[in-house]
């Protein structure tokens, strides 16, 4: 029961993007399409889970004074692995995520969970925390990405979902940078209203 809580808290209650406002740079940058959002979300989830495992394993070996550089090394290694593997086996996704994969290193969610959770907990809760937070991040990205892609391109996952007349001249601002800010702001506001209502 407790473990389930560790896993599920990342979805809504402590959603890294909407509630904790962490990792906003990738959130704003890659959500111009759902494909990118899923790719980024899953890559970050992978890195987050792996780094949580390693960090919770070696937490007793690391002197607290140098814990941050150690965390960064662990995270950066996993990011590089993801980068290389994606480049080799999914070149298309790698091409569109391009710049953002190295940015996972500085994604606050990952360092944040390492510092706040994995370095204080055992392996199993850390895995669940990493998975939950990662999936919560992915969920947020997909929600924002869906809204942006449907409004800004008339498509969802590359499939046409709006009438052709709309696709011809869609609301471009949604897939541009300002659209990302506006839509994320509105979603945060909406979630605040829902939370307040409880």
């Amino acid at each position: 029961m407790n473990l389930w809580k560790e896993f599920s808290k990342g979805f809504v209650k402590e959603n890294p993007v909407f509630i904790m406002a962490l990792g906003l740079c990738p959130t704003l940058a890659v959500t111009s399409s759902v494909t990118n959002a899923i790719g980024m979300g899953l890559a970050a989830t992978f890195v987050l889970t792996c780094s949580n495992v390693i960090i919770s394993l070696i937490k007793d070996l690391i002197p607290s004074k140098i814990r941050i550089p150690c965390f960064i090394v662990v995270i950066a290694s996993f990011v590089t692995i993801v980068d290389l593997v994606m480049n080799a086996y999914t070149p298309e996704v790698h091409k569109s995520l391009g710049l953002f994969i190295p940015l996972i290193v500085v994604n606050c969610i990952i360092l944040g969970r390492a510092e706040a959770f994995a370095s204080k907990n055992k392996v199993l809760p850390s895995i669940l925390d990493g998975l939950g937070m990662g999936l919560g991040f992915t969920l947020a990205l997909v929600v924002i990405g869906s809204i942006r892609e449907v409004l800004g391109a008339g498509q969802w996952l590359g499939m046409n979902v709006m009438p052709l007349a709309y696709i011809k001249s869609p609301m471009l601002v949604a897939i541009l940078a300002p659209g990302a800010f506006i839509i994320m702001g509105l979603l945060m506001g909406l979630i605040n209203i829902v939370n307040k209502g409880k």
Partner: peptide, 16 residues
């Protein structure tokens, strides 16, 4: 400790 961790990390990266 830091050296050890970075050494392991670079080893793994070289392998990948």
């Amino acid at each position: 400790v830091l050296l050890l961790i970075t050494a392991i990390a670079s080893g793994i990266l070289a392998f990948v």
